[in-house]
Simulated scan of single mutants.
Amino acid sequence: MLSAASQVLVRNEEFFATGKWLLVNPTDSHIAATLSDADISVFHQYFDIYQQSKDQGKADKHTFAAAYPTDKKFDGAVIYVPKSKEQLKMLIANVAACLTPNASLLLVGENKGGIKSAVKLLDSICSQTNKIDSARHCALFGGQVDKTIKAFDINKWQTEVALSVAGQDYKVCSLPGVFNHGILDLGTQLLLENLPEVKAGRLLDFGCGAGVIGCYLALKSPKSEIVMSDVSALAIYCSKQSAKLNNLDVQVVPSNGLADVNGKFSAVYTNPPFHTGIQTDYSVTENFISQLNNYLAKAGSLVLVANKFLRYSELLEKRFSSVSLVEQTSKFSLYHCNRIK
């Protein structure tokens, strides 16, 4: 079923009848196939929707990347408004550089996701913006790109963050839209400061974000094979850049949950996500925990930090013979789990 935002686009499908269009971060995998008569390409920053969308057909029209190549030009584009306004600013800058002169740039999103305030971000490239439609608690705004557009360079949006945590000094790269952009998350800090001795072997940082945990593991256990995974192209980009900043040889893979991660691990470390867009979503972590028996070695362990209100202890106890609540603050709980059942 189409998301509410995509249903609003279908109500206005006449926009896509002429010219080449770019859809950016659709919240479902069916919108391009639904608008099958239009000349549409799709820019994805989330691997799950990217994979599902390719399965609908016209795989060559779908691109998974942190930034869309600006050598490709379009007559119009639609950006699904993300939770992060800084990410939206970066997307507007990137997409505007992909448009022909006087092209249309539209924003679509849920009212509770801030679409009404987000449209102000178009003022830098459009002399006038208009509300095009409103339905299903969503709105569609747009304007004609008639101001000077600067060349887009993702490097100008990067922030280099110096960390000193648990006796280790290192740097990470961060971009708007990556978890806790530009700062060290307190949950991740709690995890790193209460780690048991880092196991040698094959280690996984699941939901790696900017690569804070994965780079720490690689620095503490240089003989280990470090794998970092995330669903976000922005996170994949940042983790690769973070590894370069610290001269580390690691593997960074895009993955929908654990589906695209291969092999077994001596230990898995994670500060897992619990949002999909603006929606609270526990399913990613619940699926991750339920599938761990296929990814952990016989004596493998899991170190997981989560917001205190997320009651993962029962799920963990179903999968592990030993589950310890190692540390707890007013906001976070840290679990060490051993001996997969």
Rank of each mutant, 00 (worst) to 15 (best):
M1G: 13
L2N: 07
S3M: 04
L9W: 01
N12I: 03
A17I: 12
W21I: 02
T27Q: 13
A33C: 11
D37V: 10
I40D: 04
V42E: 09
V42I: 12
F47I: 05
I49A: 12
Y50H: 08
D55N: 09
K58A: 13
K61H: 09
F64P: 13
A67P: 03
Y68V: 04
D71F: 12
D71R: 12
D71G: 14
Y80D: 13
P82H: 10
P82M: 10
K83C: 11
K83F: 10
K89G: 05
V95P: 02
A96L: 02
C98S: 01
C98W: 07
N102K: 15
S104L: 09
V108C: 08
N111H: 15
K112I: 10
I115Y: 00
K116P: 15
K116H: 11
A118N: 04
I125F: 03
G143Y: 01
D153T: 08
N155Y: 13
N155F: 11
K156W: 04
K156N: 14
W157T: 13
Q158S: 07
E160H: 13
A162F: 12
V172S: 09
F179T: 03
F179H: 01
G182C: 02
I183K: 14
L186R: 15
G187T: 05
L190R: 14
L190T: 09
L191A: 06
E197G: 08
L204K: 01
D205G: 08
G209Q: 04
V212A: 10
I213E: 05
C215K: 05
S221I: 02
S221C: 06
E225N: 09
I226V: 14
S232T: 01
S232M: 02
A233D: 06
I236L: 07
S239W: 02
D249T: 09
V252H: 04
V252D: 07
P254G: 02
G257V: 00
D260F: 00
G263Q: 06
F265G: 01
S266Q: 12
T276V: 09
G277H: 09
I278G: 15
Y282G: 01
Y282P: 00
S290E: 13
N294S: 13
L296A: 06
L302W: 02
L310N: 03
R311N: 09
Y312K: 01
K318S: 14
S321Q: 15
S324N: 10
E327N: 13
F332Q: 08
N338P: 08
R339D: 15
